[in-house]
């Protein structure tokens, strides 16, 4: 009787010591074999907010990750056929430096502190700010939004589009580029559930 109890105790002790190590090794092997995944919700439709989803998605795909972007609400602007008309607004955006992309260095270094009331009141101010931003983007060797979008699709980023907001805003599928999946929240959530990284942009 005593012997059996002793053996049981010994087995338990050995198992307690060995199991965690085995489990740890198995879990680590599984983690290393897994393809990382990224799920992004893109909700903004301005030039500046268009960059983060496409930069992160294309880079992640280049690193070998599985990537899905779910475009919804104003994010629909990012999958329109023509995105050359996307704008940037400095209005109510005190974090945006207002610098000129031309002229001598001292001039480029100036930060133009323009009051909101002028930004809001001067016709065409947004167009001017957008033109200056696009020049700055070119000067810095930063990719155009359309190029980044193409590169994202080329490296295998999956584009999902919220069908509800397509209808809400009166768009038709003809307004958008090809290779899009028109889906609802119920299709995106299971993708996000198993993703290692999920971002709301």
């Amino acid at each position: 009787m005593t012997d059996i109890t002793n053996i049981d105790e010994l087995i338990n002790q050995r198992l307690d010591a060995l199991l965690p190590q085995k489990l740890e090794a198995l879990l680590q092997a599984r983690e290393e074999a897994k393809t990382p995944s990224l799920a992004i919700i893109a909700t903004k439709g301005t030039l500046d907010w268009g960059y983060p989803p496409f930069i992160l998605a294309s880079t992640a795909a280049a690193l070998g990750w599985d990537v899905t972007i779910f475009f919804t609400f104003y994010g629909l602007q990012l999958v329109k056929k023509d995105i050359s008309d996307l704008k940037i607004s400095p209005l109510g955006n005190p974090g945006m430096p207002m610098k000129m992309p031309f002229g001598p260095d001292w001039f480029r270094g100036l930060n133009w502190n323009i009051p909101n009331i002028i930004q809001a009141g001067v016709p065409g101010f947004e167009n001017l700010a957008t033109a200056l931003m696009q020049q700055t983007i070119k000067n810095n060797g930063v990719a155009g939004l359309e190029e980044l979008r193409e590169l994202s699709q080329e490296v295998g980023v999956k584009f999902s589009v919220c069908q509800m907001t397509v209808e809400l805003f009166g768009f038709s599928h003809d307004d958008f580029i090809g290779d899009l999946d028109y889906v609802g929240a119920a299709s995106f959530l299971p993708v996000a559930q198993v993703a290692d990284v999920t971002l709301f942009i």
Partner: peptide, 29 residues
């Protein structure tokens, strides 16, 4: 002259055109 993430994306593409063991040289600023 290219900025993030273009060098990485171009490198990924260029590596795809090589076979295993071949070497890619990249110049960047």
């Amino acid at each position: 002259g290219l900025n993030c993430p273009l060098p990485i994306l171009r490198a990924k593409k260029a590596l795809g055109e090589l076979t295993s063991g071949q070497v890619l040289r990249i110049l960047a600023t």
